[in-house]
Design a protein around this nucleic acid. Structure first.
Lengths: 113, 113
DNA sequence: AACAGTACCTTGTATAGCATAGTATATTGT
DNA sequence: ACAATATACTATGCTATACAAGGTACTGTT
């Protein structure tokens, strides 16, 4: 029950939303997505993101194309699909509902103002 | 990859925070906590909350006392400990950081304003 | 004594993310 | 041409949380 573990648990479930959102702005390959998440202080590692991208692709929310790189192996550039865009709006609602629920619970109540 | 599953995933990790927050206001027993969560639209079931309460108790964040009921078996009233209060403030920070991170990622960027 | 209602507890399952190791491609140096 | 290095993608096993489902125990009513 340490704080780091709890942080990791809170992160779970929002990564899909974050990744889809990142791709809504620009197509990107795994390393770029990873970099964006890190810049936003969402620590994620390779072993997490690759399976997640595959899952989103298999669900039809993402698609990818191969692109040559100036150095090193070709890159898988992911792009969001129509279904993915629709899913984002659902996730956005879910996230807002969750934020509201947590706020209403954690806000201390005036038991006898 | 349906929305209900994703909702459940997002809920993960915030339940500890919510339960500790509820107990910060008043001592309560499991059924009361469950009711409060439901009122906030956080769907949780018995099988989730009992192990969680035990975990929080074993971590020293909660303590409990037995109290007689007017009808039915005695109730375990949980109360937050000093360590629990300290943990809440950490969770509060974590939650705010997470909200900020998600906001910065999901907010669409002006790629060429 | 049997039943219903309340409250608490336990076991098994699914899923997400992590750690780690492995595979494949392209460039660089000899 | 071959080996070494860097980049990018993939696969396997582990852990923790939440859920589903079933079980135990106590109290009051008929």
């Amino acid at each position: 029950m340490n704080i780091e573990n709890t942080k990791a648990q809170m992160r779970k479930g929002i990564l899909e939303y974050c990744i889809l959102s990142i791709l809504q702005n620009n197509d990107a390959y795994a390393a770029e997505i990873l970099e964006t998440l890190k810049n936003a202080k969402l620590i994620v590692v390779e072993g997490t993101i690759y399976p997640l991208l595959t899952r989103l692709k298999n669900a039809g929310l993402l698609q990818y194309r191969w692109e040559e790189s100036t150095g090193g192996p070709p890159r898988k550039y992911y792009a969001i699909t129509t279904a993915g865009k629709a899913f984002i709006s659902e996730l956005s609602t879910t996230w807002k509902d969750l934020q509201y629920a947590v706020e209403s619970i954690t806000k201390p109540k005036n038991t006898a103002s």
